[in-house]
Write a protein that binds this DNA or RNA. Structure first.
Length: 413
RNA sequence: CGGGGCAUAGUGUAAUGGUAGCACGAGUCCUUUGGGAGGAUUUAAUUCCAGUUCAAAUCUGGAUGCCCCGACCA
């Protein structure tokens, strides 16, 4: 993409009263736009990151046998009353609204209930199970206090998968496979060495659950990490019972602040019983389906990456989620050759942000490139052309390499 | 939801109760072009509603919004 055509621009100044790094950098560099507290729009660069993240998650969920769907944001209160979660005292962050005829509807904050009811139409025999269904869908949560940029918001895109199994054993096998897939996802987006499967409370869903916590100073959670075993325990269950449950010893653990970037819950038969999702087994006996739910907030994941990968000059995107893999910067006098390189890179499928702007000084282009944070920068100018070369610089390294123009395509690929 | 802070051009900031100014950005013209260039010129603001006052960005009351701490967080 030509930067001259990109409608967003980076800003020289930062929002004054914003404290969180992810909000400062992502807004300043033009990835996101704040509509109101806890509500952000995604702009071209930000949406590209979000789509990269979504693509990686989709691949892993699909590899698990997940089938993608898209459920609605408007929800029927009747369904929620059956599970007892319509009450504001039970779930306090509902957005609720009314149809013109005064019928009350809920605005989705999660989808256990509606999906369970939907599945009743298709699941009746053990032959229909197991079954794994997921979606990327917008959740609305009326947070009492939205904060920290993309970390705690009122509207966000979430990947939520729901598993439907015949029994505990079958459920548990999938649960573990999904936990492994989660670690793979976080590793693919660059957070592998920061992320720990964390034993935690199950909130209203279950006694215990597993969170995926990325260590960061920006985190809201306190976890105790065993780095050798690559697992951790959340402060909320950091007691004798919790430690025994996950087989950890206090003396092997290290306290860290962390961001919850994923959470998986065993649901047992809580919702299948409440809503009547049953199946007949081989003996003709009727049993409730054993369920689990598995969530990842995409925006929060993007914010976490920004929190962890940046320096004082700006963002530093891991290759796998960067909006573009190459930032091609053309300085004056190199227009012809840079156009050629741009075309060639595009032809071989490299995603290039091409700074073709003619009225910007070199310093400004470099500063903006650092702020936006593409993994690889290519500079082409009269100076490099004199040596029949271009300049290669990785965003996370200081070192600059000169390479011959004819080698560019193969070096970048 | 409890507490604290803040609210002025697009952004960042200034203005004893008395002319709303500066910088960046944006527009036009010229020069410049390897780490956020220079000149000329133009553009654009006191969150809202009341009150006090000859006079309110400034004082008072209320509303709204934003940020932060805490509580909550499926």
């Amino acid at each position: 993409m030509r930067q001259s055509e990109l409608f967003t621009k980076v800003s020289k100044s930062v929002q004054k009263d914003e404290a969180s790094v992810n909000a400062k950098l992502l807004v300043q560099a033009g990835f996101i736009h704040k509509e109101m507290a806890g509500v952000y729009s995604f702009l071209p660069l930000g949406l590209r990151v979000l789509n990269k993240i979504e693509g990686i998650i989709r691949e892993e969920m699909s590899a698990l046998g997940g089938q993608e769907i898209l459920l609605t944001s408007l929800q029927d209160p009747e369904v929620w009353k059956k599970s007892g979660r319509w009450d504001d005292k039970v779930v306090d962050n509902w957005f609720k609204t009314k149809l013109v005829n005064d019928t009350e509807v809920g605005i989705a904050n999660t989808h256990e209930e509606p999906l369970t009811v939907l599945m009743k139409e298709y699941v009746s025999s053990y032959r229909d199970l197991p079954c794994y269904v997921y979606q990327f869908q917008t959740k609305f949560r009326n947070e009492l206090r939205a904060k920290s940029g993309l970390m705690r918001v009122r509207e966000f895109l979430m990947k939520d998968l729901y598993s439907f199994s015949r029994n505990e054993k079958e459920f548990k096998e999938f649960y573990e496979k999904c936990a492994a897939a989660y670690l793979k996802i976080f590793s693919r987006v660059g957070l592998g060495s920061y992320t720990f499967r964390t034993f935690a409370s199950g909130g209203s869903f279950s006694k215990y659950s597993d969170e995926f916590q990325a260590i960061s100073e920006a985190g809201e959670d306190i976890i105790y990490v065993n780095k050798e075993k690559k697992i951790a325990i959340n402060k909320e269950v950091y007691n004798d019972e919790g430690l025994a449950e996950c087989g950890l010893k206090k003396e092997d653990l290290q306290e860290e602040k962390a961001i919850e970037i994923g959470n998986i819950f065993p649901l047992g038969t809580k919702y299948s019983t409440a809503l009547g999702l049953n199946f007949k087994d081989e003996q003709g006996k009727i049993n409730p389906v054993v369920m689990g739910c598995y969530g990842i907030g995409l925006g929060r994941l993007m914010g976490t990456i920004a929190e962890i990968f940046h320096d004082d000059k700006g963002l530093i995107w891991p290759k796998t989620v960067a909006p573009f893999s190459v930032h091609l910067i053309s300085l004056n006098g190199a227009e012809k050759d840079s156009e050629k390189i741009y075309d060639n890179l595009q032809k071989q499928g490299t995603e290039v942000l091409y700074d073709d702007r003619k009225d910007k000084s070199a310093g400004e282009k470099f500063a903006e490139a650092d702020l936006i944070g593409m993994p690889l920068r290519i500079v082409i100018s009269e100076r490099t052309l004199a040596e029949n070369s271009v300049e290669l610089k990785k965003r996370d390294e200081e070192k600059i390499k000169l390479i011959k123009i004819q080698d560019v395509i193969q070096k970048v690929f």
